[in-house]
């Protein structure tokens, strides 16, 4: 019992370190990648190819002055970045990176865990907006709640057919199912589309980055934050991107499974599929513009949710008829 706890603690520590390292180099990928999409060079001064730029950014952020605005609700002002950061980090715990024991927490209802954590992460966003005591963050926070809750529903509806076909809520077993029968992107393509679009909204990425619409909201819910608290939000935001991509890769693209019968190496294949989605989200960020807020809400409730529901009913019919239940 104690040994199992110790092993889990070590796995968790390794995962956290890996995620923080991934966060640092995602900033590098983001800046160089966006630059190449815009026919320019990214940062290339600090270290070869600018590879030490994240370290320079971290040092700069640490030495910035930490301001607390006068009208801030102190407790919530301090708590919000902590919540955002913690729940963004926690979501990765159930994602299997390899067969059998290569997962921090093999929860029976991994899918429900992912939902719970995504919804609790919303708290960080709007509490930050509220606690800042000024109107731009508040507007950003309110917009976030409405949009994130709406897209969370579509997300849930899109995962249901996957869960139905796999017959389990456990992420490791979903990957095993895909290993045996083929990836869900083939069987559940509409669900994949809905899930991907809703995921873009959950990550607050273009075309749904309402929460920080710079032209409208200064910096949205984290306007009044500086130094390490801002870094916590920034980490949370990029971690959502990282974790969301890993989730799509796990649920629809087979996770750690090696495609086309190539040799199975634990972390590698998930990394490749994850990198594919990181690139895809970055590509979309560089190419498309932001939707208008009301269009976005209408899209979530009027298009994504009905499409997901109808597809769920179709899948349920085929699962029952095909005797997979």
């Amino acid at each position: 019992m104690i040994w199992a706890l110790f092993v889990t603690a070590v796995k968790a520590l390794v995962l956290i370190l890996a995620l923080l390292f991934a966060f640092a180099y995602i900033t590098w990928i983001m800046r160089r990648g966006l630059a190449r999409f815009q026919i320019r060079l990214g940062p290339n001064r600090v270290g070869p190819f600018g590879l030490l730029q994240p370290i320079a950014d971290a040092v700069k952020a640490i030495f910035k002055e930490d301001i607390t605005v006068a009208r801030a609700d102190r407790f919530l002002y301090w708590l919000a970045p902590f919540l955002a950061f913690t729940f963004a980090l926690a979501a990765f715990a159930v994602i299997p990176v390899g067969p059998d024991g290569w997962v921090v927490a093999n929860i029976d209802m991994g899918v429900l865990y992912v939902f719970a954590v995504s919804e609790l992460a919303i708290y960080g966003v709007f509490l930050a907006g509220w606690a800042s005591g000024s109107k731009y963050p508040l507007m950003g926070g309110l917009r976030s709640i409405a949009a994130l809750v709406g897209y969370e529903l579509a997300l849930g509806m899109a995962i249901l057919p996957v869960v139905l076909m796999a017959g389990t809520l456990n992420l490791q077993e979903i990957v095993e199912w895909q290993k045996q029968h083929g990836y869900f992107i083939i069987y559940q393509f509409p669900a994949f589309l809905v899930y991907f679009i809703a995921s873009l909204a959950e990550m607050s990425r273009t075309p749904f980055d309402f929460a920080e619409a710079e032209q409208e909201l200064v910096a949205g819910f984290h306007t009044e934050y500086s130094s390490m608290k801002f870094v916590a939000f920034y980490i949370a935001e990029l971690l959502h991107w990282i974790v969301g991509s890993a989730l799509i890769a796990t649920l629809f693209l087979g996770g750690w499974d090696a495609p086309f019968g190539l040799p199975e190496i634990p972390v590698l294949w998930l990394f490749v599929k994850w990198a594919l989605f990181i690139f895809l989200v970055l590509w979309i960020w560089a190419s498309w513009f932001r939707t208008r807020y009301d269009q976005m809400i209408r899209f979530a409730w009027g298009v994504l949710l009905p499409v997901a529901t109808v597809w769920f009913l179709i899948t349920a019919y085929y699962v029952v008829k095909g005797g997979m239940a």
């Binding site: 026919i39 320019r40 060079l41 190419s287 498309w288």
Partner: peptide, 22 residues
């Protein structure tokens, strides 16, 4: 239109940057 936008940026991705490395 969305797909065309993606195509444009992908073309940019593989072309030489116009930045002068002063």
């Amino acid at each position: 239109a969305l797909a065309k936008a993606l195509g444009i940026t992908l073309r940019h991705f593989f072309s030489k940057p116009v930045t002068i490395p002063y």
